[in-house]
Nucleic acid binder design. Structure first.
Lengths: 188, 188
DNA sequence: TAATTTTTGTTCATTAATAAACAAAAGTTG
DNA sequence: CAACTTTTGTTTATTAATGAACAAAAATTA
């Protein structure tokens, strides 16, 4: 990958940090480009060099962080482990815990649904991968089933984050795993 | 004053922070321009746009921070208070306490004497101002006396900083003030 | 000491960020 | 609703920072 100019890295990080900070303070529709540029201590015009508007910024911000999460969950694993759902469940909860400020802001923030939507889409992708590799009980391979599972899964995770993470990552991963087992979701 | 480009502000602050950090870790002559640019996350060449070499950087760094100190000691005061030595002693000790990392690095660091020299010069300037305004007992108005007083004063402050500030700013200011009174240094 | 590596200070062409200005859109106020 | 203020998105000329290259100096190593 061609190395990125360090000015771009710094600018983007400043924008992202400012944005996440502001998202934890007030609702998305109360945040202006002005606010972001002031908080990030950069020229307002500079934001437009990287993002078309604040919706684009929100979009890319979520994409990047969910991408980091996925990476974190799969990076240190072998191909076999990667498809073992429990080995990914635990790091996922841990990652959310470590980035509490970001994800709780995103979820508590009125006026944005794209975070939820992206979580759903990510889950569906994950489920499809498990189906294609035969890890999942084929009987669940219908779009309604997939949607049902994704909604349940994402809803549970979101509930956990929004309610200040009332259980440990270990506990949550184990509980979800138990549910999956009880429903014979995974092939042995 | 004409407003400075915000890029310059950011670059200088990054350089200064990196430099102070490094000064607290190792001796000045073990610090390279390379180290500073890496720590500051800026291009090495950029340093040369603002400083001729690392000695110049050290010099300007000290000047700036001692300037801040002077400012802090005199800013919130009226003209009368400003020349009342006790009203400046206390804030001085407080300022050093608040910027402990910086000043203890400067003093503990082998290979630099300019910090001490600048402190002496600053004290001499202060004493001269007090003489010119008649605040100081005229009998002390000889260069040897001035040098004696400045050395004693600076040496005491440096001792306090180097030995991890064994007394409170209040105590130090009071003790110094007592010494001045005992020697009838100041006119009533 | 000689060979080698690191650091320095400078140059260069290129790119990113800047301040300032502007009209249009959106939001707020009386 | 109209007057007003704020925010937006874009443009422009200018400046600062960048990475890369280089030879010389300094420091390190054998």
């Amino acid at each position: 990958m061609p190395k990125v100019d360090r000015r771009i890295m710094k600018t983007k990080e400043a924008i992202n940090n400012a944005f996440i900070q502001l998202m934890s303070e007030r609702d998305f529709n109360k945040i202006t480009i002005n606010d972001i540029s002031e908080r990030a201590n950069i020229n307002r015009g500079t934001i437009y060099l990287h993002y078309t508007d604040k919706f684009d910024l929100l979009d890319k911000c979520i994409d990047e962080h969910l991408g980091n999460m996925l990476n974190f969950c799969t990076s240190t694993k072998t191909g076999e482990e990667r498809l073992n759902i429990f080995h990914s469940l635990l790091p996922m909860f841990k990652y959310f815990e470590e980035n509490y400020l970001l994800y709780s802001s995103m979820l508590s923030n009125k006026g944005i649904s794209c975070f939820h939507d992206k979580m759903i889409r990510m889950s569906i992708n994950g489920i499809n991968e498990l189906i294609n590799t035969g890890k999942i009980n084929q009987e669940y391979n219908k779009d309604v089933d997939i949607q049902f599972m994704a909604s349940a899964f994402v809803g549970t995770v979101e509930w956990w984050i929004k309610n200040d993470m009332p259980h440990s990552p270990q506990f949550m991963a184990q509980q979800l795993w138990n549910i999956f087992e009880r429903n014979q979701l995974f092939n042995p």
